[in-house]
Nucleic acid binder design. Structure first.
Lengths: 137, 137
DNA sequence: ATGTATGCAAAGTATTTGCACAATC
DNA sequence: GATTGTGCAAATACTTTGCATACAT
């Protein structure tokens, strides 16, 4: 889907900045920081302000177009939301269940940074104890 | 093992600040931010400077006593290193292998923040493609 | 006694915000 | 034309650093 179409579907007013930032994100395999997006934007000889970049990213995140993750460098990075699946997590003790969005996006980035490997698939099973049962232990 | 003993083993000069910060970390189940450690420290009616806290944490991280992770609030948190295992990652194409430290510590904290669940165990299998093979694709 | 740790103040980096002007629908 | 977006400058939040003094070995 075209960037403009995506914006329209989400009820976001179309501006040059938003369209451009969205296509920068679409064209990137890795997550990008606000600063990096700003650099790429400017390298196309168009002007934009860094705070506009931040505001746009904030908006995209609210509208669930992108995901904000933090790598281990203390900088936020942003990445288009893919088909996001969820994981079940069941308390070992009382068997209460919760669902969480798959946390692997973050791991993918960490692994890519550390090793250069691009993750293509994963299988993650987690075991845990819920807050209430933890207290009673 | 006692905080002072740990410091001694690692060849770190023993000071009141270091000993205290280490025992704060030992007594906490969750990861703690520098600011939180600072608050706890002062709530014991002892004085310390926030930059000393940061410097101490940096030292502990270098000496591999603690691990620095970042949650989704943009603040670094620190946690005692447990028995850290590693994961194998094999390239789907050329079968080259790399090892990475388990990236789940960060995820554990994220899950705990989001759901209250304390993870007790996990099984993580990852598949991926190395940088070189990725390029050739 | 020597080398290292700490407190303090100031700088650095990433991100957010207020306001006036500009662009979109 | 009304509403919303953007640039600019300043503010904020977290972390790091330089320097003089204090402490541990």
């Amino acid at each position: 889907m075209e960037p403009k179409e995506i914006l329209k579907n989400k009820g976001i007013k179309i501006t040059k900045g938003r369209t451009e930032i969205l296509s920068i994100l679409k064209n990137s395999e890795n997550s990008l920081s606000a600063e990096k997006i700003y650099q790429i934007y400017k390298s196309n000889n168009i002007n934009i302000n860094l705070s506009t970049v931040y505001r746009t990213l904030e908006l995209f995140e609210e509208k669930e177009i992108i995901e904000k993750i933090t790598l281990n460098d203390g900088v936020f990075s942003y990445k288009l939301k893919g088909k996001t699946h969820r994981h079940h997590l069941e308390c070992d003790i009382c068997h209460k269940e919760v669902e969480i969005p798959c946390p692997m996006l973050q791991i993918q980035e960490l692994v890519q940074n550390a090793t250069g490997f691009t993750l293509t698939d994963h299988d993650l099973v987690m075991k845990g104890v819920c807050k209430d049962c933890k207290k009673k232990q």
